[in-house]
């Protein structure tokens, strides 16, 4: 009887030890354990009301490259910079031209029917539509980091994140015609605030130059001689605004003057009215890699949005849903 009691006791002991091992295993060895009492919940900012999403992804073009870098739409063609080359593809993704480059392209711009401008870190190189290299412009200084190109008539605007300014070039000969520093007066302590190399600009169909001031989450319209004409800004982690130290990272302008924006970290693509109010969401954060890079964006005159997904290495094509 006594022996039986010992066996029962030992069985319970073994069971208890087994349970403790399992609990310990679940709570520690598999590293799940208890929840995080200090968690910073970012889900409210990632969640987007589906009614706001007026676009759908209709197609995409997979890219065979290690590092997609820049995209530009012109005349039913996509100009794509990646690794150390640029290529022209038709809208079905068929390659029409590929040109090797000596360095990584940072931005790309094709003047209608004319030259292709490739921005490297400190300088611009010009190619014709057959891929022949025609010119290399004088490099900017050591601290230059070119992050955006836009054009009006024969003027090429170049965003230099390193020097926090916009260079105004003559596209014909590559000569600098002026510098826009983003200061409304000489007494201003700051102009463009660019904590990381995300600094973009665009010209709308009326020829107005708009520059993103990413540290202020503002959109600023400048005259050619660098005077601030108007601006709007909206800081918010919610879908209505922009957040983080450098957003939006990329900008394109639709033919009706609306802004198409692409953001990093909380990656999302949205459309804002020329006056700043949110119009719709093209692609919510759920469409992208978490904490990913901001897709470069370009638009067709018909309003189709082409997003270069850097993390997933593809061109994603977004078109307006019918009835929105």
């Amino acid at each position: 009887m006594k022996q039986k009691a010992i066996y029962i006791f030992l069985s319970f002991l073994a069971l208890a030890i087994g349970v403790m091992i399992v609990i310990d295993f679940n709570s520690t060895r598999n590293k799940k354990g208890k929840g995080n009492p200090y968690a910073l919940d970012l889900e409210p900012f990632r969640t987007v009301d589906p009614a706001l999403i007026h676009y759908k992804e209709t197609r995409n073009i997979l890219l065979k490259c290690d590092q997609p870098r820049a995209i530009f739409y012109d005349n039913n063609r996509l100009y794509i910079g990646a690794d150390q080359y640029f290529q022209i593809v038709d809208l079905d993704g068929n390659q029409l031209l590929k040109v090797d480059l000596p360095d990584a392209p940072q931005c790309i711009y094709s003047a209608p029917g004319g030259s292709i401008f490739i921005a490297f870190r400190r300088h611009i190189a010009v190619f014709d539509q057959q891929g022949q290299h025609t010119e290399t412009w004088e490099p900017l200084g050591d601290s230059a980091v070119i992050t955006g190109l836009a054009m009006r008539d024969s003027t090429l605007f170049v965003a230099d994140a390193g020097n926090r300014c916009i260079m105004r070039y003559s596209a014909a000969d590559g000569k600098i015609q002026g510098i826009i520093e983003g200061k409304t007066s000489a007494a201003d302590l700051h102009g463009f605030i660019v904590p990381s190399p995300e600094f973009d600009l665009a010209v709308n169909t009326d020829g107005e130059l708009w520059v993103v001031n990413p540290g202020k989450h503002s959109f600023e319209n400048y005259t050619d001689d660098g005077k601030l004409r108007t601006y709007w800004e909206t800081s918010s982690p919610y879908i209505e605004g922009f957040t983080g130290c450098c957003n939006p990272a990329h900008l394109a302008i639709l033919s009706d003057g609306s802004f198409v924006t692409s953001e990093q970290k909380l990656v999302r693509i949205k459309i804002h009215k020329p006056s700043g109010e949110l119009v719709s969401v093209v692609a919510p954060p759920a469409k992208f890699v978490r904490d990913g890079k901001a897709p470069d964006i370009t638009v067709s005159p018909e309003g189709i949005i082409y997003a270069l997904d850097i993390d997933q290495k593809k061109v994603r094509i977004f078109e307006k849903k019918s009835g929105t």
């Binding site: 970012l42 982690p237 970290k265 909380l266 904490d291």
Partner: peptide, 12 residues
């Protein structure tokens, strides 16, 4: 690490 999360989610 709450600040670390905030800094890496929104900043540099």
């Amino acid at each position: 690490s709450k600040c670390v999360k905030g800094c890496s989610s929104f900043g540099n």
